[in-house]
């Protein structure tokens, strides 16, 4: 096994399992459409809440799709093979998270114009939304991968434990939605974007190590 062959096979695997990604995207679209139907479909309400709605839906969809990201690897013995491969486990994890991120965020960005239009998002806010997603979503995946690693050997309650990860999403959610809201009412938003970038960089540094430690513990169990 090499880093490159690992990256290739992970991409191939996600492609073979594309139905899972599609399901998460479908879930995203459904959640986003439920808000106007359930609360208020007037442009006044939707323009100000669009950022929050899209970010809540994204966080849930991400959590859903990556909560089981190591499950198959655990069951088929791959985790053990990673551990004895002589390769650096945090880096393998980083590669796997990158693949997951690319496969989810690329289609999400593609359907975003439709979703944004549905929520009456102005053009400038739309681009701010894209920026928040690009800068903030890596941390969603990185932090989520810690949760997935922690719960990989649990038969029951894995989803419940994943919800424990949600509080760590709150700062990301706050900075992302405040950036979008600020742009909607003409206030500066670069500070919030910078914070999102900072959180992503921070999780880039810590999450692979924490996930690697959890995986080692799960395999040892």
């Amino acid at each position: 096994m090499t880093y490159f062959s690992f990256f290739k096979s992970e991409s191939l695997l996600l492609w073979r399992h594309k139905q899972d990604t599609l399901n998460a995207l479908l879930f995203f679209v459904i959640v986003v459409t439920l808000f106007p139907l359930g609360i208020d479909a007037t442009p006044d309400f939707l323009t100000v809440s669009a950022g929050g709605i899209i970010w809540c839906a994204t966080s849930l969809a991400v959590l859903m799709s990556i909560s089981r990201m190591y499950r198959e690897d655990y069951e088929d013995g791959s985790l053990e093979q990673w551990l004895v491969s002589g390769l650096y486990l945090p880096f393998l994890i980083l590669l796997k998270v990158t693949v997951q991120w690319l496969f989810m965020i690329a289609p999400l960005l593609l359907i975003l114009p439709i979703v944004g239009g549905m929520l009456y998002l102005s053009e400038e806010s739309f681009w701010v939304l894209v920026a928040t997603l690009l800068l903030g979503s890596p941390s969603l995946f990185l932090i989520g991968s810690i949760g997935a690693a922690l719960t990989v050997s649990l038969q029951q309650g894995a989803m419940l434990l994943m919800l424990l990860i949600l509080p760590m999403y709150i700062p990301i959610l706050i900075f992302a939605t405040s950036a979008i809201k600020a742009s909607e009412i003409g206030l500066p938003y670069l500070g919030s974007l910078a914070m999102l970038l900072a959180i992503s960089l921070l999780s880039l540094v810590f999450a692979p190590f924490m996930a690697a430690a959890s995986i080692k513990a799960s395999v040892n169990e």
Binding site: M1, S5, S9, L13, R16, D76, G77, E80, G86
Partner: peptide
């Protein structure tokens, strides 16, 4: 680990990949 090949009870093959793709993963 650099000089070890381990094959356990669960062998670590990816079920959705073909034999060729699995070998490409482990013996690139």
């Amino acid at each position: 680990h650099k000089d070890t090949l381990y094959i356990g009870h669960s062998v670590g093959l990816k079920k959705a990949l073909t034999v060729r793709e699995n070998l490409a993963l482990y013996c690139p």
